[in-house]
Amino acid sequence: MPDAGGPLLPPAGPAAAVPGPAAFADVLGWLATHYNYAIYILLMMIGLYAVLAKGNLVKKVIGLNLLQTAVFLFYLSIGKIDGATAPVVWTDRPPGAEGVPYENPVPHVLMLTAIVVGVSVTAVALALVVRIREAYGTVDEGEILASDEAQEEAESARAEAQEAAADAAGARE
């Protein structure tokens, strides 16, 4: 497993209940070497927040994109090795290149696929938002739901009126 060097998670200090200065130093040390993981978690939470809390349909799509980008960062981080070169086959190695490790290319390849998937999802999502804007005249979730509710109420009221009229006609006969 390729790794950035140190342990992946901050080692748990002996006095876990009361974090002393040593524990803080551990966390700081972890942050200094593994800050990309912290950024990935932060990005992901921002994306998740936008997807769940925003009412604007376009903003939700942006949130989804942030979420996906965070995952890209995560994958690239697990393939990263400090001081390693690109995984390219050298026909004539430059002097001093022997013995230098190369980075794991598999996560990069996986993320190429994931980027394609992300673009497709975004395209379909934006196409749907355009159609929604045409049909409802708004891209706000609350307004769309309210508009649907109003339509349904009107429809059921019309159906009831029709039934009542049919009953009245039946009674006259």
């Binding site: 989804l64 994931a114 999502a125 749907l128």
Partner: peptide
């Protein structure tokens, strides 16, 4: 349209979790 959009958002969320699981 809105039903498709809602499924898209939640489905992509689910797929992203699966991708993280794979990672």
């Amino acid at each position: 349209l809105y039903a498709g959009y809602s499924y898209l958002i939640l489905g992509s969320l689910g797929a992203t979790f699966i991708l993280l699981g794979i990672g």
